[in-house]
């Protein structure tokens, strides 16, 4: 018990120390102060071998055995330098968050660049799973596969980059932190109840294609409206209130409201899954839609950005 408590305490202290030393950034370069290096397990065996050979050379008073042990020792030292240089000046950058729907594994797109780096293991700190980059020269894009997570929002944990190149005698590693996040949206599942039928009904009404319609009216701009439809001439006179052309067919549909009731546990998950499915369906059909959760209300709109905001709200529920 005591042991576990002190271990946790050390872990916390170490994490705090790391956070102070290496705050998260969108671009990280591995420099001397953030690269750590220690002999690997085989490295310790190698040290043992050298000591053994030294003893044997001494006891047999055999200079050649001593010579071999010193050769291995000098190689050990040079390898330490080479292992460090292999990781030195490696640059890591991140541009966007990782997103996925619940049972999938998110992938975080990373930019890697280095003069020459071989056999780089990339993974998350504290996780077993590692990905291997055999040879890295110049710039390269890399998708870091994250572990399976349940619905929610997670700040990206520290990464762990490590390598034992060139002789496996030293393990060189670093814990860079990147400012990025992982969004795990609920799984999109269609659930058959009244709600869905109504939605299908509404969707079937709108069969008339837009291209055939003539512009006959104007309406105020809603987020998600195509910029092509904005009346630019009117925009000049009233820049705060853009006006868009409206087509007769779509003037009528009321915005869809997706409401998340105050539920908990499995019930909430199932509602969220369905809401997710609805959001995707509505976006695909070009409707505008709003979302109302217990904490937030998002005004009706459409477009990829709006969809993302809505999905993020679902993830946060």
């Amino acid at each position: 018990m005591m042991f576990k408590a002190s271990k946790d305490w050390f872990k916390r202290k170490f994490a705090a120390w790391l956070a102070k030393r290496q705050p998260a950034a969108t671009q990280v370069e591995l420099t001397q102060s953030v690269i750590y290096i220690l002999p690997s397990r085989f490295g310790w065996w190698f040290v043992f071998l050298i000591a053994l050979l030294y003893l044997m050379g001494t006891n047999y008073q055999n200079n050649l055995i001593l010579l071999l042990s010193f050769m291995l020792l000098s190689l050990l030292m040079v390898t330490m330098l080479l292992a460090f240089l292999n990781m030195h000046q490696l640059k890591l950058s991140v541009k966007q968050d990782a997103r996925c729907f619940a049972p999938e594994r998110a992938q975080l797109p990373l930019g890697l660049s280095s003069k020459s780096c071989q056999m780089l293991h990339i993974g998350l700190r504290g996780q077993r799973q590692r990905q291997l980059v055999e040879s890295l020269s110049q710039q390269q894009r890399f998708a870091l596969v994250l572990p399976t997570l349940s619905r929610g929002y997670y700040p990206l944990p520290r990464l762990e980059l490590s390598s034992t190149f060139p002789l496996g005698l030293f393990r060189c590693w670093s814990y860079p932190a990147l400012t990025s996040a992982i969004w795990v949206y609920p799984e999109a599942i269609e659930q058959l109840h009244a709600n869905t039928e109504r939605l299908a009904e509404q969707a079937s009404k709108q069969t008339t294609p837009h291209a055939l319609l003539e512009p006959d009216d104007v309406k105020s701009y809603q987020a998600g409206d195509s910029p092509k439809r904005i009346l630019w001439r009117k925009l000049a006179s009233a820049p705060e209130q853009p006006v868009v052309r409206s087509y007769g067919g779509e003037a009528s549909p009321l915005p869809h409201w997706i409401k998340i009731p105050a539920l908990q546990g499995a019930a909430l998950e199932s509602v969220l899954s369905h809401a997710c499915f609805q959001l995707l369906a509505l976006e695909q059909q070009g409707h505008s839609y709003g979302l109302q959760t217990q904490s937030v209300t998002l005004a009706p709109a459409k477009g990829a950005l709006h969809l993302e905001r809505c999905l993020q709200e679902l993830a946060l529920c």
Binding site: T58, N59, L67, M71, L73, S74, L75
Partner: peptide, 22 residues
């Protein structure tokens, strides 16, 4: 890099008399 290290160690690393009989 390693050769001067090697030579230096061979020449200067302390040598001991045999510690035990092999």
């Amino acid at each position: 890099l390693s050769f001067p290290l090697w030579l230096g160690m061979f020449l200067l690393f302390p040598r001991l008399p045999p510690l035990w009989q092999l």
